[in-house]
Amino acid sequence: MLALNTNLQKLVNIAQKDEKLCIGLMSGTSLDGLDIALCRFTGNGLQTQFSLVNFTTIPYADSFKREVQQVFAKKEASLEKVCLLNAYIGSFHGDLILQALAEWKINPTEIDFIASHGQTIYHAPKRLHQLKDYPNATLQIGDGDHLAVKTGILAISDFRQKHIVAGGEGAPLALYGDVLLGSKPGENRILLNIGGIANLTWLPADGNYADVLCTDIGPGNTLIDAACRKYYNQPYDKDSKIALSGSVNEPLLEALFVHPFFREAAPKTTGPELFGMAFVDEAQLMSGTAAIPNEDLVCTLSAFTAQSITQFIQQNFKADDIKIFTSGGGARNPYIIDQLKKKLPTSVIKDTAELGINPDAKEAILFALLGNEALCGEPIAIGNNPAVLMGKFSFPL
């Protein structure tokens, strides 16, 4: 019998370890920076035990953001730029990992694997592109081989493609980690992530996996952030100061909800390809509100995010004893959280720190968990989601 080559033998050895030290990476649609979560896992599947060893977000320079924005959520972009950024981001993220490990005084040889989400540049479910001969599709760049070679660490990346091939839309992938880390028998729970896009996972008290729902809801911070960049030269509405200085414009708010996405059945996915400033401009034109004050626009977009979340929860989950655990940048938006509490008065709303999960680190943690499952897990059937293991392996040598 032929022996395994060195890379495959190391892969088997890592998979068989009782405890794994790994890094989860998340770079979201807000382009704020790279979330780096150093995680420790034992077990897999329902026996998964997890601890967050360290976490940091390394902000992106404006020059890097401008490069990515040239190809981000655009139907037409430079193929050369996409090609170059795919290689560059893989290597660049490797540099940021090495920087974080140096600050934590950890040798890269101590890390078993990296699980990288990559940088989404286009998300195209068939519902939105409506091209009959083409399937659901999504594209994340930041090549895993460049990441592995730069760091000398096994890299697992490109998680979303297997989900699509198996019949999903490639998102939200929070489902698997939310079920494994966030379920509690006897409690109706919602894990609500308010990132660029808002998504949630419904975890029913009876623990019936057939009833679990994970879906995008609509915009999270993406429209608020876009308006702040356009009109205030600010990356986001810190402490909701702009929203709190304005008033909700009801005709505009009503026009924003006209889009059929809000009447489509869940689960569903979306992205800034739909919810961008062109979407807002169209709603303002429809409602005759193009000249409203900028602070009223930001306030209305904030209300739009909050109301889309609360309406979805009210329409889909009838229990009045739901515990909602928030994460993502929107979890620190006072206006949005206050609106959720007002419109969902029977629900307890706290962030995921209550579950022992840093709300800023949650998405990076969940990709680390997907990496752990790719190594030593088995497919789990949850609701109507594909029962698959996701991720592609890249060796450092």
Rank of each mutant, 00 (worst) to 15 (best):
A174C: 06
L213W: 02
I197N: 13
T222I: 07
D216W: 01
L175R: 01
Y209F: 12
G170P: 02
I190L: 15
P185T: 15
C214A: 15
N208Q: 13
K184E: 15
T215M: 02
D211M: 01
A210V: 05
R189I: 07
N208I: 00
G207H: 03
L203A: 09
L181E: 11
Y176V: 12
A174W: 00
L191P: 14
G195T: 08
L192G: 14
N193G: 09
N221M: 06
P172W: 00
A205P: 01
K184D: 11
G218V: 06
L180F: 05
L181F: 06
D216G: 09
G177P: 06
I197E: 14
L213I: 12
I190Y: 08
N188A: 06
Y176R: 08
L191S: 10
Y209A: 09
D206F: 04
G186H: 00
L180A: 13
A205F: 04
G195M: 01
A166P: 13
Y176H: 12
I164S: 12
Y176M: 12
D216Q: 03
P172N: 09
G196F: 01
K184R: 09
N188L: 00
G186A: 06
T222W: 05
Y176G: 10
L213V: 14
A210Y: 01
A174K: 03
K184Y: 04
N188M: 00
N199C: 02
D206E: 10
I217M: 09
G177L: 01
L175C: 10
A166K: 02
L192A: 13
L213M: 14
A210T: 12
D178H: 05
R189E: 12
G182W: 00
L173S: 12
W202M: 07
G167T: 02
G196M: 05
G168N: 09
P219D: 13
I164F: 09
V179N: 03
L200N: 11
L181G: 10
Y209T: 08
P219R: 02
H163C: 12
D216P: 02
C214F: 01
V179A: 04
A166C: 12
G220Q: 00
N199Y: 04
I164D: 15
T201N: 07
V165P: 08
N193E: 10
I164K: 04
D211Q: 11
G218K: 04
G186F: 03
D178E: 13
G182Y: 03
G218L: 04
L213D: 11
V165Y: 08
A166E: 15
G195Q: 08
W202Y: 15
D216T: 03
T215G: 09
D206V: 07
